[in-house]
């Protein structure tokens, strides 16, 4: 028996909004410790990893490890039926071929349940090595979304250059060039408005705008985002999911021929 109840159901709705454009289908691995999802996009350029800790749920029970393969478009359609303030419960029997979503209004006066068929997905699992990144940039998630959106007007790629002076995002194309520089903030009233740069060595890497823009669909999950970079390895874009976990996007760089 698997059962996970989340009073802050809107978090699960936001997680789906953050992955459904990138992934058509994916497996949710349910274990005693929580729920994880790892999947590559169709072109194998990026990888999404979602981690939801068991302690983050208001009720969590997973008697046996369970892999729930889901069509994410279908899951998203079902979660659209939940109101933002609904309590969401996911339930499945051991070895079941369906999962049930239960939505309860805060007053408990309306209860809906939706059953969805599970899929058998044969997905590659990748081992992600622990890495000490040369640069870790923390910035407001809305600012990052704005930068990606604005620079997408100029070209297909964004160059992210991190040095001790700050971080520079650049794009170039037919209409011209755009550069956005952010310096580390010296003092801020609110922690989530801060730009914090931890740098061991300067790094400059180039990434596809299309993917960065898809990652920013996670913006409603968290006021801050972190970008981790090292020379010649994938970028990690990480958002926390309330207090219950995090979503990480790994993006392979573009390399000059």
């Amino acid at each position: 028996m698997f059962e996970a109840r989340l009073v802050q159901g809107s978090l699960l709705k936001k997680v789906l909004d953050a992955i459904k454009e990138l992934l058509n289908e994916a497996s949710w691995d349910c274990a005693d410790s929580g729920i994880q999802l790892q999947a590559m996009d169709n072109s194998h350029v990026s990888l999404v990893s979602v981690n939801l800790r068991a302690e983050g749920f208001d009720k969590y029970r997973c008697d046996r490890n369970l892999i729930m393969g889901m069509d994410l478009t279908s899951m998203s359609k079902i979660l659209k039926c939940a109101a933002n303030d609904d309590i969401i419960t996911m339930k499945a029997q051991d070895n079941a071929d369906t999962v049930t979503f239960i939505f309860e209004s805060p007053s408990q006066e309306k209860v809906s349940d939706y059953e969805m068929k599970l899929m058998n997905l044969d997905q590659d699992h990748l081992g992600i090595p622990e890495t000490d990144y040369a640069c870790v940039i923390k910035l407001p998630s809305g600012e990052f979304a704005r930068i990606c959106r604005d620079l997408s007007n100029f070209g297909e790629s964004i160059v992210i250059a991190c040095s001790k002076e700050g971080v520079k995002f650049s794009a170039a194309g037919d209409i011209g060039t755009g550069n956005i520089k952010l310096a580390q903030t010296s003092s801020v009233d609110k922690e989530e408005e801060a730009v914090i740069i931890e740098m061991q060595e300067p790094v400059t890497l180039t990434f596809a705008c299309r993917y960065l823009n898809m990652f920013t669909k996670a913006t409603p999950l968290s006021p801050q985002v972190s970008l981790s970079m090292s020379p010649d390895v994938p970028l990690v874009v990480e958002y926390s999911i309330g207090d219950i976990g995090q979503i990480q996007y790994f993006l392979a760089p573009k390399i000059d021929d």
């Binding site: 590559m40 072109s43 194998h44 350029v45 990026s46 990888l47 590659d124 699992h125 990748l126 081992g127 992600i128 090595p129 790629s157 180039t206 596809a208 390895v233 994938p234 790994f250 993006l251 392979a252 760089p253 573009k254 390399i255 000059d256 021929d257």
Partner: peptide, 14 residues
Amino acid sequence: KASQMRIDSYFTSI
């Protein structure tokens, strides 16, 4: 022109 790398050329299958 820069070419797009694939993510599975960095991480190994497990």
